[in-house]
């Protein structure tokens, strides 16, 4: 474990917590893409499927973190699609998730480390995570704005994989560890946040709200 991966995971936990708090406190999921949250839940379930296959005692933090990610993302989907369904902005959350799931699944079958079920599920989860934020960014471009709290969520969510890139550089240099598929997907994922990062740094940090040119 290195500092980059530690802060990456903390940033990821923060993102999940910020979103949960926003929905729970405001009792509304306006401005939140339910599709992105569904895709993240699918990512966690397919990536941590080993939790279900052979139950390992929860003594180590990694297992606990995996369970937190899965339960928090499923609970977030429950809040969006059931509890606060009335506030779900279905009209603007209109990016076709199939256009992300099918290519990710196809690519996972073509480009993977080992052609076996668990490995393909892991690869699918990595590819899907890289593009899972697109419905959320699409929704913001449709509504033309993002609530400040949602911007903080996106910043934390984007920073998590950006920090992982630093972690991979660190591990390559000191442990000569390379996981090419995760690195390539992680770079793509972080690039998708670039224009948001620019808006966040130039606007939200100064207390302004992100309003996209309609």
């Amino acid at each position: 474990m290195n500092i980059f991966r530690l802060f990456g995971d903390l940033s990821h936990l923060a993102a999940i917590a910020i979103l949960l708090l926003k929905i729970w406190k405001t009792r509304s999921c306006a401005g939140v893409s339910g599709k992105t949250q569904l895709l993240f839940a699918v990512c966690f379930i397919t990536r941590y499927i080993d939790l279900f296959l052979h139950f390992v005692s929860l003594y180590n933090t990694e297992k606990v973190m995996k369970l937190i990610y899965i339960s928090a993302s499923v609970f977030t989907c429950y809040l969006i699609f059931f509890k606060f369904k009335a506030t779900y902005d279905g009209n603007h959350d209109s990016m076709r998730a199939e256009f992300l799931i099918v290519p990710a699944a196809g690519l996972a079958c073509l480009i993977n480390t080992k052609f076996d079920a668990i490995e393909i599920l892991w690869t699918f989860s990595i590819y899907l995570e890289a593009v899972a934020i697109l419905p959320q960014l699409f929704l913001i471009s449709k509504t033309g704005e993002a609530e400040t709290i949602t911007s903080h969520y996106l910043f934390a969510q984007g920073s998590y994989r950006a920090l992982y890139i630093l972690n991979w550089i660190y591990r390559y240099h000191y442990e000569s560890h390379v996981d090419t598929i995760a690195i390539v997907a992680g770079v793509v994922q972080t690039i998708l946040y670039c224009d948001f990062f620019y808006l966040y740094i130039t606007k939200v940090v100064k207390g302004q709200k992100i309003v996209l040119p309609a």
């Binding site: 990821h12 973190m65 995996k66 668990i118 996981d179 995760a182």
Partner: peptide, 10 residues
């Protein structure tokens, strides 16, 4: 046993 968890990250 079995699972040589190559991917040791979350």
């Amino acid at each position: 046993y079995g699972c040589d968890a190559v991917h040791d990250e979350l």
